[in-house]
Simulated scan of single mutants.
Amino acid sequence: MLHAAVRFYDRIPVLVRLLVIIMLILTTFSYLLHVLEPQVFPTFFDAVWWAVVTSTTVGYGDFVPETVTGRIFAMILILFGIGFVLFFVTNLASSTVNEQHRWQKGTLPSSFSNHYIIVNWNERARQFIDQIQRAYPERQILLIDDGLVESPFHNSPRLQFLKGSPTMQSVLRQANVRKARALVITSGLEGTEQQADAQTILTLLTAKHYCDNIYTAAEILTSEQLPNARHAGADELIASNMISSLLMTESLEQQGIAETITLLLDVEAAPYLRSMPCPEDWIGRTFEEVSRLAASMDILPIGVSGEKKTNLHPDKESVLQEDQSLLVLESSR
């Protein structure tokens, strides 16, 4: 029993222990002075008030022990009480500064939930964070990077930096990945494109092994690694080099294509492209019927997505299934 109590005490944070000790000291001396000198301390609260102002060196002088015994207890309170109070305040300030330092250096575990986790700090990551903050300002974002020396964010309660390798389960645990909304992996800047893709796939495997239901989106630079990334469990693949090549190719022959695609994906532009779950009363209807229903809501369906396959401009007689999502253009967010 005693051993269990000692172990429990050891697990209590130092600041909590100090606070409990201070409360015990103040309560004990307040009770003693109230009993010894009821004429000076007519209520227990008066004695507590005196103990607090005495132990914190405020000393208003509105209550003063008159007996020798009372003054001896007062001297003991001053010697021990002030020491514990000052030690508590010093540790509290030190703990606050230390936590701020750990936050800046990326060594503080995250308490975020329903948040986005983004891997690797680069220009794409910076733009992604900027877009999320504009579209969903309430969303929390955590950045994992092994190369940064300190956080690129400044005093934002919804942004946190965690230093470490995302291929380590301990780092994913600190990132609270099991409570995350999604994991986004951008390609690292070190090494070749093949090396960057290999690191991305290794991160995918680690994340899916640690939390198999986490939604993952991964940037892949080489087309050869797209099948491997799918096998690793990526829910969404972003072939950034292929997308850039397609946009550049089409923009030469079809002027305005690149700008149009950019506008469709811009969170502040209208109309904007988004994916929406198929409403329950639309399931089993043809795409033509769904298009008429959506038009009354100022929505333009352009395709369906399901089982990691997307069909743009499907046949008007095709029937919507329960596990499919609609790709739509919407006039306002």
Rank of each mutant, 00 (worst) to 15 (best):
M1D: 14
L2D: 09
H3P: 01
R7H: 13
F8Q: 10
F8P: 00
L18G: 08
L26T: 10
T28C: 12
L32Q: 09
L33K: 04
L33I: 05
L36D: 14
E37V: 08
E37W: 04
F41R: 03
P42K: 11
W49E: 09
W49G: 00
W50Q: 12
T54E: 06
G59Q: 07
Y60L: 15
G61A: 05
G61N: 11
E66I: 12
T67Q: 06
G70C: 09
R71Q: 14
F73K: 06
F80A: 10
F80T: 11
V85G: 03
V89Q: 08
T96G: 14
E99A: 07
E99Q: 14
R102S: 12
Q104C: 04
I118C: 07
N120L: 03
W121F: 12
R126S: 07
Q133H: 08
P137R: 11
E138C: 02
R139C: 07
Q140R: 14
Q140I: 04
I141H: 03
I144Y: 04
D145C: 15
G147N: 15
L148H: 09
P157V: 08
P157G: 10
L159S: 02
G164C: 05
T167F: 01
L172K: 04
R173S: 15
N176H: 12
K179V: 05
A180G: 10
R181Q: 13
L189N: 15
E190I: 14
Q194D: 15
A196C: 06
D197H: 02
I201T: 02
T206Q: 14
K208V: 04
D212W: 02
I214A: 01
Y215G: 00
Y215A: 04
L221Q: 06
S223K: 13
N228A: 10
A229H: 08
A232Y: 05
G233V: 04
E236M: 09
M242F: 13
L246C: 09
T249W: 05
E250F: 15
S251C: 03
I257D: 01
A258F: 05
L265Y: 00
V267L: 00
C278Q: 00
E280W: 01
E289K: 11
R292E: 15
A294R: 00
A295V: 02
S296D: 15
L300S: 13
V304W: 02
V304A: 03
S305P: 01
E307C: 01
K309R: 11
T310W: 00
H313F: 05
P314T: 03
L320F: 00
Q324D: 01
S332C: 04
S332W: 02
R333Q: 08
